[in-house]
Amino acid sequence: MIGFIFECGPQGADKHVCEYLASQLRPGVKLISRTMDNKLKLLAGAASVAKSLLDEGCERVLIVWDLRPAWPDKKEKPCRAAERQTLLDALTKAGLQGQPVYLVCVEQELESWLLADETKLSAYLSTDSRAYSAPRTRRPDDVVNPKSRVMKYFKEARGLRYEDYVHAVKVVKTGTVNPQRLRQSKSFARFEDKLSC
């Protein structure tokens, strides 16, 4: 059993995409997710939620958050190192140092993973009457605003407004999961590694 803690709400894109990918990468494993609504609440409360998930029998817990969430909590520039340290300090205070609790900061946001496999974006955005070819993004974690890039592709291809909570999991479910392509995102590679390390 794997536990997840997300910064989004119960219907958030991060939750649905990560659960789907985990089910494909670790078939048959039971998944339990807890959502914290935003990054501030995740940073403040993830340690106690992780302890509860371990107490419920999870073999490991992944705390997953976006470096640049769609609804930032602060006006200052986000810092992965500072956020990581906040979580590590909270885990230590909760007596979870050395326990199988892993931190996965998605850089920059979930759409980085969508950009990592342009074949899925292309397949989802193509129609019977018009094929669409999303450009390849070699370093998706370096794209400063991946959500706006995905929005641009949706508009170009089908005149659609991209809504992460609706479309992200549909894109990921298009075709089979190709971990090799997704590993172009280092944060996805960390997510994959922590599912079974």
Rank of each mutant, 00 (worst) to 15 (best):
M36Q: 14
M36G: 03
M36E: 15
M36R: 11
M36I: 04
D37H: 12
D37Y: 06
D37L: 11
D37E: 15
N38Q: 10
K39H: 07
L40P: 00
L40I: 08
L40R: 14
L40C: 11
K41H: 13
L42T: 11
L42M: 11
L42I: 10
L42N: 05
L42R: 00
L43C: 03
L43G: 04
L43R: 09
A44M: 12
A44L: 12
A44E: 15
G45T: 08
G45I: 07
G45E: 13
A46H: 05
A46Q: 11
A47W: 04
A47K: 06
S48P: 00
S48W: 01
S48K: 13
S48E: 15
S48V: 12
S48Q: 13
V49T: 13
V49D: 00
V49A: 10
V49Q: 08
V49W: 00
A50R: 07
A50Y: 02
A50E: 05
A50M: 07
A50P: 06
K51A: 14
K51H: 09
S52W: 00
S52V: 05
L53V: 02
L53Y: 05
L53N: 02
D55C: 06
D55L: 14
D55F: 04
D55A: 15
E56C: 09
E56N: 07
E56I: 02
G57Q: 10
G57C: 12
C58K: 09
C58P: 08
C58A: 15
C58Y: 03
C58W: 01
E59D: 15
E59A: 13
R60E: 04
R60F: 01
R60A: 15
R60Q: 04
R60L: 04
R60V: 01
V61K: 01
V61D: 05
V61A: 03
V61H: 00
L62R: 05
L62A: 10
L62V: 11
I63Y: 01
I63Q: 02
I63G: 02
I63L: 09
I63C: 06
V64W: 02
V64G: 03
V64N: 02
V64L: 14
V64S: 05
W65E: 06
W65F: 15
W65N: 05
W65R: 09
D66W: 09
L67V: 13
L67N: 05
L67Y: 01
L67W: 02
R68G: 01
R68N: 11
R68T: 12
R68P: 00
P69L: 03
P69F: 01
P69S: 08
P69I: 03
P69R: 00
P69D: 05
P69M: 01
P69Q: 05
P69W: 00
A70W: 02
A70V: 11
A70R: 14
A70N: 12
A70Q: 13
A70P: 00
W71T: 14
W71I: 14
W71M: 11
